[in-house]
Write a protein that binds this DNA or RNA. Structure first.
Lengths: 194, 194
DNA sequence: GTCTATACATGGATAGAC
DNA sequence: GTCTATCCATGTATAGAC
């Protein structure tokens, strides 16, 4: 539409195409050749925009990851420990539900988890930030295991193809319930209008 | 020891070596070349014993999978629905704890899940067997989501490297607790001597 | 029956021409 | 900014030695 279209939209088109192919064939099932063909360019052209396939994967997942980091930051700033947990739980579930397709990719598919490892584990990652909020300074085994199970359970159940037929609100409520049960949080007295 | 040693132990050594390399570098990170080198043979020799890399992966995981199918069968034969769930939960947690390294591989690593898909999903798979026991004939969304989250949470938490330092008994109890909370099962009145 | 040698297709990746 | 040409590793496959 705009007169400027054509400049650097190749990168944008590339990411959109990659996301589509990734969700169709999985990350590992999508070769650079397929991406290049879909764009009408060559493999090497793709390499101009991204130095490696992993960079494409990262770029595709980045928005959701940014949201997550933002939520972790917000949650950490809450005063009461319970409020920190509730804030994190609400935000996490919301992200999982809204990015379902991506989460399914992330949980079930090959390459994604590897590409995300550096962002997800290791110091100052979203993962450790979440765990520190959920477990607190207390290394109680039961709490530790429950926190891990909660995050993993919510993410995998949220991305599961078998649960894909549920609507966003239904899924969100069910996942929140899972988190509350495992983290020992009460159900809110009234529904927040968010 | 025995005079017969040397015959077909290549296949056995191959599987043991593959398991070790898999847990060290992941399935995708382990090439047939690495396996062959570790055994002192060529790639083609490996190929003689297994027609494809996936077959190796399958063979490595098979014992644990057999156990799981056996547990599902046992659980399904219980009369009371609650007993079915309890039996499945106990057995599942036990398998996860005892095969922790494998479960970590299965959950975090690329190739394993793909190699297991045919055994794990699709009709008459262990997965559907477990879900049918856990959810019953009632397609209640909350229960459905909780069951998925329970299985995923137990498996991933059980295989998580960050929880690897816990002893078997500690981990088992914590995972059982996760399952009971999500599936609405009471804690047993006395510890069974199993 | 077990292995070696060898070949092939494909994938990711790089260098350099245009 | 895109392409050609090329490289190397990998999974897969076959032919043939022992």
């Amino acid at each position: 539409m705009a007169a400027v279209a054509g400049h650097e939209d190749t990168r944008t088109r590339l990411l959109a195409t990659a996301l589509r192919l990734f969700t169709e064939h999985g990350v590992e099932g999508t070769s650079l050749q397929m991406i290049a063909d879909a764009l009408g360019v060559t493999k090497a052209a793709v390499y101009y925009h991204f130095k490696a396939k992993d960079e494409i994967t990262e770029a595709v997942v980045e928005p959701a990851l940014r949201e997550l980091e933002s939520i972790v930051g917000e949650a950490a700033r809450e005063r009461r420990p319970g409020a920190r947990i509730d804030h994190l739980l609400d935000g996490f579930v919301d992200i999982v539900v809204r990015h379902r397709a991506l989460v399914a990719l992330f949980s079930s598919d090959p390459g994604v988890s590897r590409a995300l490892e550096k962002h997800f584990f290791g110091k100052e990652s979203a993962m450790v930030g979440m765990m520190s909020i959920l477990t607190g300074p207390d290394p109680d085994p039961a709490r530790d295991v429950a926190a891990h199970a909660a995050l993993a359970g919510i993410a995998l159940a949220g991305g599961s193809p078998e649960l894909a037929h549920y609507g966003d609100d239904t899924l969100r409520e069910a996942l929140l319930d899972v988190g509350r049960k495992l983290l020992g949080r009460p159900r809110p007295r009234r529904t927040p209008e968010r």
